[in-house]
Amino acid sequence: MRSPQFSSFVILVVLLAVFAVADGNFLSPLNISNMMAFLPELGIIALGMTLLLTAGEFDLSVGAVFALAPVVVMLLAQNAGVDIGVALLVGLLLCIAIGAINGVIVTKIGISSFLVTLSMLLIVRGAALYITQGFPLKSWDQPGFFVTLLAGSVNIGSFRFYTSLWWFIALSLLAVYVLRYAKLGNWISAIGSNRNAAVARGVPADAVKIWLFIATSVLAGLAGMISAFRISAASPVAGTGYELEVIAMVVVGGTALTGGRGTILGTIVGALMLRTIRNGIVLVGVPGLAYNIFVGVIILAMLILHALLQKNAARS
């Protein structure tokens, strides 16, 4: 078992042990509940990003979509008095449109996804700032079906679990199935591994990529809604920098940035790992402004480890 997701898993266990020993509160119900509340929000986006990276593309606009979708939904529901269900539907269509535009420009015009989604990041973030005039929206305090569906919670003993965790688990299972067992997964890996070979076998590479861009955007919007409902507020600057954090989760888990090799289990491990690190270093008393140094160092260490393992595997 020298697979990258396995080595990531080992390191995750080590990290958990280190933090548990260093701080007694790390494994407390409250802290675990907190981590499990945050985990799905980035984790859900990471699932889409894994599939996209496996097909050889990535999406830098997810953090901005994370903000824009709830901002639009809340504006419609609060200021325009639109029914929340309808507002959510508009938000969904918006995410689909953003993903479709990304995908069509990347595949049909042939501009790299880095440039296309970087531009989209600016457009979407700019739109969120402009329509809110830069201010967070007033809080949404009307519980209802959709709030329960996306951000409800149950207490089990002294643990508190949000519905978002079930969303994350269900979507993870779906993603594992698609990538490993479905025909589509075979296509996704083949496209990322050798696009021309896939096309020569009749695989509709462009269509698959466009749908993956759409899926990633929709998942980013869903994560944004979950977050906004949980804290009862939508901010135009929410999710800033999430795109890089999500890509970090995915590659730390062992998915190749160059496409062809993707692992959902690895991504789940990666998401847990980054969440653990962010949470753990606070508890062990690392100064706030130094967080990112640690996060960066650990990501780099993980990537070096993966690279070394792969070199080893190639030699044997």
């Binding site: 890996s189 083949a190 591994s193 021309n196 070979a197 020569a200 190749a256 062809g260 090799r261």
Partner: peptide, 11 residues
């Protein structure tokens, strides 16, 4: 069977 490429190496 094309000259340049036929297979996906990661599969």
């Amino acid at each position: 069977i094309h000259q340049d490429t036929s297979l996906a190496p990661d599969l």
